[in-house]
Design a protein around this nucleic acid. Structure first.
Length: 276
DNA sequence: TACCAGGTAGCGG
DNA sequence: CCGCTACATGGT
């Protein structure tokens, strides 16, 4: 194991970034420390006044994590596009520590299939159980318990739909299985999605059973770093109804609409006292 | 008990 | 092209 220290850029907060609902594999262990799995590695991350301190395996260097946490982008510049909108300005002032992670595509796809009509604690539980059952052991947590990678498509396909159902995935079991079948039958599927403009990419993702507009938008935003993808869930629906009766107009329809969405989503949930 | 949770497919109109 | 509902599960 080794420890990496990264000087903390402005507009970065580890708690906001890991608790804003974009990822499901981190647990908070104290005020500023999180443990979890990213890029098939077990990591511990802690934020101090001016640094991000990251403990991980020897086989990665700083650049891997700079990229994963998207620390090289100037979020203050991105957010400046929102200053024309008073609601969004308030949300972004509150949530401006969020960074849009560059997560694994396949994991993001399955995770957001699981997310449908579900709540975040239970989504995390299902993903943990799936990983323990069909992932690979990648090390041990601080308490000694084994840590597992997210299962490959091959592993989930081999497991079969019944085994997925056993892990309390409910009606989503057949959707997860269909996603695995899709990427196995067409190994270039996710690359092709990545090559398409956002709208066409969403249509391609939606050929998988259980992937609709919202899941596709989340997969594109969190797994393909498409900052123009705009997921509309129950929270965003309420926000739109209350503050945006005229529908999606800029900046909610612009090239950074997805970042705006995350600011609004996180702000609204915190305002309503939702603990993730 | 009924309703909700980062929704979607399948149906009838 | 709507709008409506079943769908698994666990928490409140």
């Amino acid at each position: 194991m080794k420890t990496i220290t990264i000087s903390k850029p402005i507009c970065f907060d580890i708690t906001q970034t890991l608790m804003c609902g974009q990822c499901f594999r981190f647990e908070k262990t104290d005020d500023h420390t999180f443990c979890g799995v990213a890029l098939d590695r077990y990591i511990r991350v802690r934020q101090t006044e001016d640094s991000l301190i990251l403990t991980t395996e020897e086989d990665t260097d700083d650049s891997v994590w700079l990229e994963y946490f998207d620390l090289e982008a100037d979020y203050s510049a991105l957010a400046s596009a929102f200053s024309t909108d008073s609601v969004l300005q308030e949300a972004s002032a509150y949530a401006n520590g969020i960074r849009l992670l560059r997560q694994d595509r396949w994991e993001t796809l399955v995770s957001f299939i699981i997310s449908q009509n579900n709540n975040i604690p239970r989504i995390k539980g299902i993903i943990k159980n799936l990983s323990a059952a069909f992932g690979n052991t990648i090390g041990n947590a601080v308490d000694g318990s084994p840590v597992y990678s997210f299962p490959t498509a091959d592993a989930l396909y081999a497991a079969g739909v019944d085994a997925l159902y056993e892990l309390k995935t409910g009606f989503r079991a057949k959707y997860i299985y269909d996603a695995a079948r899709t990427v196995i039958e067409n190994p270039g599927f996710l690359d092709e999605v990545a090559s398409l403009p956002t709208k066409e990419a969403a249509e391609m993702l939606k050929t998988i059973r259980g992937v609709g507009d919202k899941v596709a938008a989340c997969v594109l935003l969190f797994g393909f770093h498409r900052l123009d993808a705009f997921p509309i869930d129950v929270w965003v629906k309420r926000i739109l109804k209350t503050y945006y009766p005229d529908g999606l107009t800029p900046p909610l329809s612009g090239e950074y609409a997805g970042l705006a969405q995350q600011y609004l989503f996180y702000y609204e949930r915190c305002k309503n006292g939702v603990n993730i």
